[in-house]
Computed example of a mutant assay.
Amino acid sequence: MDIVKHIQPHTENLHNVCRRLSTEQLKNLKLAVIEFYYLLPGFENVISRHIQIPVTKDQLSTDISNGNLESYQTAIEKSNAEIDEYAADYEEPEALDIFILEALDNAVADTNTPASVAGLLIGVINTLDYYENFSDEPGYWSNLLEQELTFQNEILIAAGKEAFSDTSVYQKQYQDVDFAVL
């Protein structure tokens, strides 16, 4: 799939829809989308290694639900401040690590920030695009990427309704996908 043709209008739509959502709708959408990132290999280890905080799926979800995000934000700021890209021992993170770290940053951003939810959704697209470009089965990943654009539009419609509360939609959507294979 040539994502370049679709990404700009899709991104604009994401931002427009997210701006119209309530705080509760944004929170539920964050909880749903972060489920995708938990499926990536080493989610908790990547965060622990780069941000130096222990993160479990249950605790992070609880903290997002309750708005207890300051400790994550502080840890991310501290970690970012300590990065010296010009140091002799600096190692640039792997692409999947970057996707995970960006997802954490978006997930723990202020709940009233629609751009963070859009960032999580765009990150899913970027991750699938990465798999398409670097796997031995680009057609498989291209198909998933195409399905993802439709899935995101469906989720945005559902999120716009007050009844949206199924935060497991991403886990269900990708439960049979092996992200460890690349």
Rank of each mutant, 00 (worst) to 15 (best):
T150W: 02
S165R: 07
E70R: 13
L120A: 11
E146N: 11
T150D: 12
Q147S: 05
Y174W: 11
K161P: 00
E85S: 12
D105H: 13
I125A: 01
Q171Y: 00
A81G: 05
E91I: 12
V169M: 01
A75I: 03
E94L: 10
A180S: 15
D97Q: 15
I157G: 03
T74S: 07
Q171V: 00
I157A: 15
P114E: 05
I125D: 06
A81D: 14
K78Q: 15
A95M: 11
N68L: 13
F134I: 09
I98Y: 04
E132K: 14
I76V: 04
P114M: 03
N143R: 12
E132F: 01
D84W: 08
D89A: 12
I122L: 15
S165K: 14
Y86H: 15
N112M: 07
A163K: 12
V117P: 01
T74V: 14
D97A: 15
V181I: 12
V177Q: 00
P93A: 09
Y90R: 09
E132H: 11
T111D: 04
Y131S: 04
E94C: 02
I98R: 11
T167L: 02
L149W: 00
N153I: 04
N112H: 09
N153C: 03
S79E: 04
N143F: 10
L156N: 11
Q152E: 13
A158C: 02
D97S: 15
Y174Q: 07
A163V: 10
S135F: 08
E82C: 05
F99H: 13
N80L: 14
E146H: 11
G67E: 03
G119N: 11
A81E: 15
K161F: 09
E154N: 10
G123Q: 10
N68A: 13
A180I: 06
A118G: 09
L156T: 05
Y170E: 01
Y72I: 03
F99G: 05
F164H: 02
Y90Q: 11
N80H: 11
N126V: 00
T167N: 06
E94S: 06
I157Q: 13
E148F: 02
K172L: 01
Q152G: 10
D105M: 05
D176G: 08
T111C: 02
V177F: 00
L149T: 03
A163Y: 08
Q147W: 00
I83T: 13
V177I: 14
D136A: 15
Q147G: 07
S135W: 09
L128G: 06
S79N: 07
Q171G: 13
Q175F: 00
I157D: 15
A109T: 04
L144F: 03
G119S: 12
A158H: 03
E162A: 10
A95P: 05
N66Y: 09
P93Q: 09
N80G: 03
L104C: 01
T127A: 13
P114L: 03
Y140D: 02
E154Y: 00
Y72S: 12
T74W: 06
L149S: 01
